[in-house]
């Protein structure tokens, strides 16, 4: 059933390729800086987002992801540096740019005085859609968000996942060229996250350009074609999820836990790069099983052993010496 919806709902995702504009990046930043008083939130970043791309900012809280998103969304002005969104200057052409953006903020700011459908129709009116067009668009988006049977409900009693889907649907109301999603699945349970990912993947398949922030590596791996890793307001790495893992990690990682508190790094030396964490030891290896065999051969007896594929979490750890969610 879900697949059928995807075909019919081609219009939802806003396929609006203008002729001759595809070469120009939708977002272009050079030396972009955002300061709040003495605090430097974004410390001179360069980036480009191409049309049709799903671009991610991965980083811990306070890395400068949201500040960057707010500047791209033209609600926060850059302190210095150059920023072009859809080829325009956010300082001078904010309303024109925002007319073509879809924004899903980190915290839902749905209108509590309106019901689900009215949240969509009212928002459509801010973009200048006619009443009839707004109503039609709301029906399409209710279906996209799978909220048809809650259309007349107030927003407040909806579950977290439903609110998020409604917020994303609301961001699509003007058939945007560029959709900004600030931590789209933070705070949702696994089932709600997967449903949301599926919806976002559908947008991406339809050709919508997505820019999202996340501090979940699995989300970045699932959704992003390309991403930058941010830490302390700076970009510390850039590439596709796969290429980042290849560059900064090994194909496999062995997680070892020991019953005792002793430092086993010495005995593990030479098997692969070793990263001792408070609760476990990470061992980077091309072949995880071979590494485990070597660990046992050296007479070590870990209480638990996990061999897994390398992830962006490992990339982040390698780049910053810290874990992503702490």
């Amino acid at each position: 059933m879900a697949v059928a919806v995807a075909v019919v709902r081609g219009s939802v995702v806003g396929l609006c390729y203008g002729p001759g504009v595809s070469e120009q990046p939708l977002v272009r930043a050079r030396g972009l800086v955002k300061r709040f008083g003495d605090f430097v939130a974004v410390d001179g970043i360069d980036l480009e987002v191409a049309r049709g791309e799903a671009f991610g900012f991965l980083g811990p809280n306070g890395a400068g992801k949201s500040s960057t998103m707010r500047m791209i969304g033209c609600v926060s002005m850059p302190t210095s540096g150059e920023l072009r969104v859809l080829g325009m200057d956010p300082v001078r052409e904010g309303p024109r740019i925002r007319a073509r953006l879809g924004v899903c903020p980190q915290l839902d700011n749905l209108d509590p005085d309106l019901n689900v459908r009215e949240n969509l129709t009212t928002y459509a009116r801010y973009f200048g859609l006619s009443r009839a067009r707004a109503r039609a668009r709301a029906e399409e988006l209710l279906e996209f968000a799978q909220l048809q049977d809650r259309a007349a409900s107030r927003v407040e009693p909806l579950s977290g996942g439903m609110k998020r889907r409604l917020t994303i649907a609301r961001a699509m109301v003007n058939e945007p060229d560029l959709v900004l999603l600030d931590e789209p699945t933070t705070g949702l349970d696994p089932q709600a996250r997967h449903l949301l990912w599926e919806r976002l993947f559908r947008l991406k398949q339809g050709g919508t350009t997505l820019v999202l922030t996340t501090h979940y590596m699995d989300e970045a791996e699932q959704l992003c074609d390309r991403l930058v890793v941010m830490d302390g307001g700076r970009i510390v790495a850039e590439g596709s999820p796969r290429s980042l893992i290849e560059t900064y990690s090994t194909p496999e990682v062995v997680e070892l836990r020991f019953a005792d508190e002793a430092d086993h790094s010495g005995k593990l030396a030479g098997i692969g790069r070793v990263d001792p964490l408070p609760d476990r030891v990470l061992l980077y290896a091309d072949d995880g099983d071979a590494a485990v065999a070597e660990v046992h051969r050296r007479g070590l007896a870990p209480s638990s052993v996990l061999v897994r594929r390398s992830s962006l979490e490992d990339v982040f750890l390698q780049l910053t010496g810290r874990t992503l969610v702490d």
Partner: peptide
């Protein structure tokens, strides 16, 4: 309610 925050993300 952050109503205005949502509105300011639009051309308004």
């Amino acid at each position: 309610a952050k109503t205005f925050e949502a509105v300011l993300a639009t051309p308004v």
